[in-house]
Amino acid sequence: MRHLSRASLLVIALLLFIFVGLRVIPVPAALVNFGFHQRNSEENRQLWASLPMQFASSSVCVNCHQNQYDMWQKGNHRTVNCENCHGPAREHLATGVPPVVSHTTRELCGTCHARLISRPSNFTQVNIAEMGGQGECVTCHDPHEPRAGMPPQVPHNLEGRTDCKLCHGPHEPWLTPPPELPHTLEGRTDCLSCHGPPEIRGATLPHPPHSLEGRTDCLLCHNVGGIRPLPEDHTGRKSTTCLNCHRSE
């Protein structure tokens, strides 16, 4: 009988090994941690939540860059976050190393403002290959406030109307009067040459009063201190962009 009990003990041990031992040995502790084939989701969630942030948001930039922030806040680019052009602020905040001021090429402006049929029609789009010549857009447009120093644009759709004074002149009593002209006209007749959309605006600004034959560098004569210096709000502009607004015909 002794050998029988020993045999049954061996069988029990074998079964224990097969059903308990083999189950535990090849399964790492991490797998049993949360029930079979389950990860510790709380631990993993904490891991995801603890990753460092790269973008700080403009509300952090204002702490040091108040001037640029104020200008940006008033301008049409106020919805474009600082870090969109300047890059994520994390390293700049941690080490003080100046951020990579992003390139100021026409292509960068074109990622938003190049004319595309797919863009919403009410979004500002220009022919990026021709708009303002071949120079950089930032020559005329401050990226923090792209319309700084420029006459305000007509704030509504023109729908084919050309005579602004029909509504905005001194007039018959209106039910809801449109705003009257905010400045004297002094002989100016074409409002849209300054306030119109770019297509109209560029073609109607003052033309060069002389022939351009052979001349290419406007600033040779019209630079600050020249014969007829450019107006103050044109400071910093280059010869390459003059002809885009002041066309010769």
Partner: peptide, 16 residues
């Protein structure tokens, strides 16, 4: 095998 198994069987299943 038994000694190796015991701690795993009693492992804390709620190690959140």
């Amino acid at each position: 095998i038994v000694l190796y198994t015991i701690p795993a069987l009693f492992a804390d299943f709620t190690t959140a």
